[in-house]
Design a protein around this nucleic acid. Sequence first.
DNA 1: TATGAATGAGTCTTCATTCAT
DNA 2: CATGAATGAAGACTCATTCAT
Lengths: 194, 194, 194, 194
Amino acid sequence: MSKADKTKGYIIEKTASIFNTKGYAGTSLNDLTEVTGLTKGSIYGNFKNKDDVAVEAFKYNLQLMNQLFTSEKAKEESCRGKLLIYTKILCDSSGSKLPIGGCPILNTAVESDDTHPVLKELAKKALLNWKNDFVGILNAGIQAGEFSSDLNTEQIAITILALIEGAIMINKLTDNNNHIRLIMQSLRDYINQI
Amino acid sequence: MSKADKTKGYIIEKTASIFNTKGYAGTSLNDLTEVTGLTKGSIYGNFKNKDDVAVEAFKYNLQLMNQLFTSEKAKEESCRGKLLIYTKILCDSSGSKLPIGGCPILNTAVESDDTHPVLKELAKKALLNWKNDFVGILNAGIQAGEFSSDLNTEQIAITILALIEGAIMINKLTDNNNHIRLIMQSLRDYINQI
Amino acid sequence: MSKADKTKGYIIEKTASIFNTKGYAGTSLNDLTEVTGLTKGSIYGNFKNKDDVAVEAFKYNLQLMNQLFTSEKAKEESCRGKLLIYTKILCDSSGSKLPIGGCPILNTAVESDDTHPVLKELAKKALLNWKNDFVGILNAGIQAGEFSSDLNTEQIAITILALIEGAIMINKLTDNNNHIRLIMQSLRDYINQI
Amino acid sequence: MSKADKTKGYIIEKTASIFNTKGYAGTSLNDLTEVTGLTKGSIYGNFKNKDDVAVEAFKYNLQLMNQLFTSEKAKEESCRGKLLIYTKILCDSSGSKLPIGGCPILNTAVESDDTHPVLKELAKKALLNWKNDFVGILNAGIQAGEFSSDLNTEQIAITILALIEGAIMINKLTDNNNHIRLIMQSLRDYINQI
DNA sequence: TATGAATGAGTCTTCATTCAT
DNA sequence: CATGAATGAAGACTCATTCAT
């Protein structure tokens, strides 16, 4: 790894949480220099512009979140278990295991849908990938005989996703862990009844 | 109504959709003058500052959304019918009947939770009011014998809310009406099975 | 007195102390409306512009100060007594009997000498009048045999004035009454030795 | 000396006289960019804000004045001579050797006493330092046998100061050198009679 | 005469970006 | 590759002034 790559990685790591907390418009280059301890020139030496950093930061946050889910899912053998993992992660820690600032897809979706097409596209792809991941698990479950074969996998997948994202939003807004726990209980019931 | 009140109302009406689309940080005073055709001085003559406009714009958007729900609910007699209304509104028009920019609670929640305490508080209250509205409908349904008396009304209410907000977010992000329709189908099933 | 004259007088009275405290550039029209309880339109109905108010306010402050000196001087019969009056006034109350904000001549001189020719001219005239008043007292004293006839009245008059203005400035700046008392003691000695 | 330090110094040098003539409130950032030929961004890159420039400009003007006095005093051997220096400086050039705009202590005292606490404090300290300098000279003179030992050094020091500041104010206001000459003649007499 | 809403040039300040070193 | 000084457009906000009512 070249020095440039190392610095680039360092900048992304350090700035990812700010973008995920303050949003793209709310994050200034001064924020970036403060949190990295680097100069503006250094950031512009490694990235084309603020957009470029934001995009990489989004990817980093997404990867962080995906790694969390992937590693937890790996511990489960059954497909239902893999689905239930999400309720456990979000319920136990009330979302605190997510990247700082919460779900990057949710954050980016809401801020950037009308203002930042590149980020919007990334978030959209991430969301659809997530949905497809659920579809994959459901199909595997059908194959394995865990689930009945006449499921509407698309509908179930997108419903789970909506519940999760809605729960994360409500949890951040209300600062009350009970809400996310109740929703996750509903999700658990939903998954168990599939 | 004084001229000041009229201008104030005019400014709020005109700017509400910008704040709901671009967010607080993403909306500039130039945006506000452009969309209203007024000068900065005029805006500052009617509002204390940008914050003040944003707060009123949020209230306006919220009221717009609440009026939509309230008027549709009034057409339904049964409590279940009142709950199902949301699936119809969001499904039929794919959210296009919402204020321009989407659900102001969702938008404000995501942008302002870490940056704008006043707006966050307003969004939080609006969300809890909405939840309590659901709880009220559920209790009325229990009273009327529509629903079984051993429901966890809090859980059901917050779950419906999470599904709705999640659906709105997904709909805006993916520009694909199928997703919200599927989620609303799940919500319909959920409500009908109560 | 017409209503216009009454309102004009009211505005001057109320605003004089702000101009004398914050200075011309530091006083805004909002300050003027706040302290008078009137509207901007009302102020512009009675004065041509901010300058006009400032000029009248200066004259008012000046008159206030002159009245204080004149009435005190009237109580003294001897010319030396009339001169000593100033030391008493400034020493006893440490300047608190002056118009709010201090000596308007001093304030206007320092702020407006390079920026506001009209006010500067007014302050200059007031200062020279004051000096001439001293000269007059000194001449009367010579006539009355109180003072020797070979006094340099111009020099004495302007020296007294410099001591007084210097004392007022030092008093305001240091918030320490001892300084003005010591200077007034020196002035008393100076006058008594004439 | 870094480039930043050089630019900072350049800005201070160039802007000091504006602040000393127009005052803090009367000096705008446009004034500062015009006189320096720099951009606003450049000024804000070197100073925290306008306040910061004003404070440094005051210090610079003060230093300029103090250097003038110090270098002239150094040429005198006797303590009386050191005191008389001030009459010479102010009398000969009628104040034209002072920083452009006049005595920064006087200017700042009058403008900032009610509006700018930081500048007021700086001016206050400068004035007391000056007074203490006079006290020091007087004590040295007593030690050296030049002056009688029963002097009220505080009173003499503050009286000299008041005369000087009063003279500077009168000179600027009246544009008539005779006045300052007469006052300085009185000061000379006063010092010689100590 | 008094009101108060509107103006637009002005205020101070921060922004993302560039470039010589 | 990194620095840090400079840019100038844009940011939010205040100003003195005007004018229809």
